[in-house]
Design a protein around this nucleic acid. Structure first.
Length: 536
RNA sequence: GGGCCCGUAGCUCAGCUAGGUAGAGCACCGGGCUUUUAACCCGGGGGUCGCGGGUUCAAAUCCCGCCGGGCCCGCCA
C-alpha cells in the first residue's frame, strides 16, 4: 500500500488543473516597506512561479502577477533600518512619496527595487509586476472596484464590523485619501465622494487641513484593497503567509467581500510558512521593515539561484525554515547532491527521498534540467581556492589550481568552466562578507621566530622530504601527494598527526586546516617548496 | 478572545492526506582509518511517537478533550 510520490508543487498544479479554467491568474504581493528578502521570494515569487509553469506545461494559459504595495504608508518601525529621525519624519507618507533614505535614488520605492527586477530575471522568474500606485492611477477595473465599494458601503461596513472591536460608523467611506498638504495617507478621513470627478473630500487629522484630492492618489483600506485587487485581476490562486491565515484575519473578510460585494468567488489559497534568520543564534522571522532580513538581491551575489529554489522546493511549504549566511556552502552541497542523485552518480536508497530530490532538482531548473551534470567543485573547496589566491577572481590561477587538483582537464566544457568561475566569484563575495572565522584561511606571509622556534630537526627533515617529492614530480595528483605526506608523517612522527600540525603551522600558523594536499596544491608550487625548505 | 504551525531517539526531522512490526541523519559507544575549517567505512546502544479518552481485529497515523512550544490576528498593511 504505497502512495505514489507527488511533489507538493505538482499536487497544487493538479488541483488547480481540475478547475479547467480558460485562464489562471496566480497572485502574490510584496509591500515595499523595506528591503525585499528571501522569505518574500519563497512565498511570493518562487512558489507561485513554479505553479504557473506547471499549469502551462499542462496546456493552460497562466500568468503570475505580483503586486508591489507602494501606495501604503511608511511604518514607523522602519526606524530600525533607517533611523528614528527619518522614520518619524516620513511615517504615514505613501512609500512612493518617501525620499530615498540614503539619497542615492529618486525615492524610497526605487531604492528598494533598485536591483530587484534584475535579480528576478536572474532567477528566471516570469512575473508581471504592478505597483499599487499605478493600479490606483490607471487600472479601470480598480476604479470600478472602488466605485462599487463606495456604492455598497453600507453592506461593506457591516461585513468589516464583524471583524472589528472598534466599530466603523454606518456612513464610513472605505477610502484613504491622500492629503494634498502634508502628503499623509494614514491619518486622513474621507468626508464625501464625487464619483463623476473621481475626487474625495477629506479631513487630515495630522495637519488639520481639509480639501479635495483625486481618488487616483489614495487607496482602499487593506481589508477592502485585497478583494478589490482580486476583482481587478480576476485572481484564481494566491499563496499567503501566516498573517493572512488567521480566523478573523484579512483572508476571511476578503473572501466574504469578494463574494458579497463583487459577486465573485475567492481565489484558491495555499499556506506557506515564513523564513527566519538566525540572529544571536535564535531564529527570528524575517521582516523587512523591522530590519531582520537577508536580501533577495544579495542571493545572486553569494550563490546560484537554483540553490535557493532547490531548498524551497525540497522543503515542504508548511515547514518553518531558518537561514543564516554561514549555511550557504551547506545549501550548495544540498543542491550538488541532488544533481548527483538526479544523474545517478550517487545512489539514494529511499525511493521517496530519491523522487523528492529529483523532482525538486527539476523544479529548481525550471523543468529544464541540464543534459549533463555540472559536478562543480564544492562551494567549500572553491572558498579555499579563492582565499589561497588572495580573493581575486583570477581566471588563470583558479583554473590552474583546478587542473592541478584534477577537477578539470582539457576536455572540460566551456559551460562547466563558466559555472565554476561563477561559483568562484560567489565564493569570493561570501568569504569576504559572511564566512565565519573557521572558514577563513590566512596564509603566513613570512616565517618568523614565533614559528621557527617551534620547529625541530625532525620537522625540517619531514618538510624537506615533502619539498623534494614535489620538486621532483610533475602533475602530482592530490591523492598521491596526500599519501606521500601521510607516509612521511608516519615515518617521522608518533603519532603521525603531529606532522600535519607542523605543516599547518608553517602555512597557516594554526594546528589544523583544510585537507592538506589539495590545499597545498592551491598554492604556488615554488612558494610551497620554498616554504617547506623554510626559505621564505 | 480567536486562529495557524509544531510536539516521534540527546539534537534536527521523515513517517500521518489512503490505519498494518518505530525510521533517517547528526551526536554517543566499539572497531577500522590519514588531523581533513561539519571526512569516510563497519558494528552497537538508545523512543510509554506530549498527555488522556474514543473508534478499530489493529492507531504515531482517524475523532474528541487537554498540556507544552513558536508565530499570527483582534491598529495598519
Amino acid at each position: 500500500m504505497t502512495i505514489p510520490y507527488v511533489h507538493w508543487i505538482d499536487e497544487t498544479v493538479e488541483k488547480l488543473a481540475e478547475l479547467k479554467l480558460e485562464k489562471y491568474v496566480l497572485n502574490s504581493g510584496i509591500s515595499v516597506s523595506g528591503p525585499i528578502h528571501i522569505g518574500h521570494a519563497r512565498t511570493e515569487l518562487i512558489t507561485p512561479n513554479a505553479i504557473k509553469r506547471g499549469l502551462e506545461k499542462k496546456g493552460f494559459d497562466a500568468v503570475h502577477i505580483c503586486i508591489l504595495y507602494t501606495q501604503d504608508p511608511l511604518k514607523s518601525k522602519v526606524k530600525r533600518i533607517v533611523g528614528k529621525e527619518f522614520a518619524e519624519k516620513w511615517a504615514g507618507t505613501r512609500l512612493i512619496d518617501v525620499p530615498c533614505p540614503y539619497s542615492c535614488c529618486s525615492n524610497w520605492v526605487e531604492h528598494y527595487l533598485k536591483n530587484f527586477y534584475e535579480t528576478v530575471k536572474e532567477f528566471g522568474l516570469e512575473v508581471e509586476f504592478y505597483t499599487t500606485t499605478e493600479i490606483y492611477r490607471e487600472h479601470p477595473r480598480m476604479k470600478e472596484a472602488i466605485i462599487t465599494c463606495i456604492e455598497k458601503r453600507g453592506e461593506l461596513v457591516e461585513i468589516l464590523n464583524k471583524f472589528r472591536t472598534k466599530k466603523l460608523p454606518e456612513n464610513y467611506i472605505p477610502f484613504m485619501p491622500l492629503c494634498n498638504n502634508c502628503k499623509s495617507i494614514d491619518r486622513t478621513v474621507a468626508l464625501s465622494v464625487d464619483i463623476d470627478s473621481y475626487e474625495v473630500e477629506y479631513k487630515c487629522l495630522k495637519c488639520g487641513s481639509t480639501g479635495y484630492s483625486s481618488m487616483r492618489e489614495g487607496k482602499l483600506p487593506w481589508r477592502v484593497e485585497w478583494p478589490a485587487l482580486w476583482y481587478t485581476f480576476n485572481v484564481t490562486f494566491e499563496p499567503y503567509g501566516k498573517d493572512m491565515a488567521v480566523a478573523g484575519g484579512s483572508m476571511e473578510s476578503a473572501s466574504i467581500i469578494i463574494r458579497e460585494i463583487f459577486g465573485l468567488k475567492e481565489p484558491h489559497h495555499m499556506f506557506m510558512e515564513w523564513v527566519a534568520l538566525l540572529v544571536n543564534n535564535k531564529p527570528v522571522e524575517m521582516t523587512s521593515s523591522g530590519g531582520v532580513y537577508f536580501e533577495f538581491t544579495e542571493w545572486t551575489k553569494v550563490s546560484d539561484p537554483r540553490v535557493l529554489k532547490y531548498w524551497y522546493f525540497y522543503m515542504k511549504p508548511n515547514r518553518h525554515l531558518t537561514f543564516e549566511p554561514s549555511l550557504i556552502p551547506k545549501l550548495n552541497d544540498l543542491y550538488d547532491e541532488a544533481e548527483k542523485v538526479y544523474f545517478n552518480i550517487v545512489e539514494e536508497p529511499d525511493e521517496k527521498e530519491r523522487q523528492a530530490k529529483c523532482r525538486s532538482f527539476e523544479l529548481a531548473n525550471d523543468d529544464k534540467p541540464p543534459k549533463e551534470p555540472l559536478l562543480l567543485p564544492s562551494y567549500r573547496f572553491m572558498s579555499t581556492i579563492v582565499q589561497a589566491i588572495g580573493l581575486k577572481l583570477d581566471r588563470e590561477k583558479i583554473l590552474g589550481i583546478l587542473k592541478r587538483t584534477c577537477h578539470i582537464d582539457e576536455s572540460t566544457s566551456d559551460e562547466r568552466i563558466e559555472a565554476i568561475m561563477e561559483r568562484a566569484k560567489q565564493a569570493i563575495y561570501w568569504v569576504s562578507k559572511y564566512a565565519p572565522p573557521q572558514f577563513r584561511i590566512n596564509i603566513v606571509e613570512k616565517l618568523d621566530e614565533s614559528i621557527l622556534s617551534k620547529l625541530t630537526e625532525t620537522d625540517r627533515n619531514f618538510f624537506r622530504e615533502i619539498a623534494e617529492f614535489i620538486e621532483s614530480r610533475k602533475g602530482i595528483k592530490p591523492e598521491v601527494l596526500e599519501q606521500v605526506i601521510y607516509d612521511k608523517a608516519r615515518k617521522h612522527y608518533k603519532p603521525h598527526r603531529k606532522g600535519f600540525q607542523k605543516l599547518y603551522l608553517i602555512f597557516l600558523g594554526t594546528k589544523s586546516g583544510p585537507r592538506i594536499a589539495p590545499f597545498l596544491m592551491t598554492l604556488d608550487k615554488s612558494f610551497v617548496i620554498k616554504r617547506l625548505k623554510l626559505l621564505e
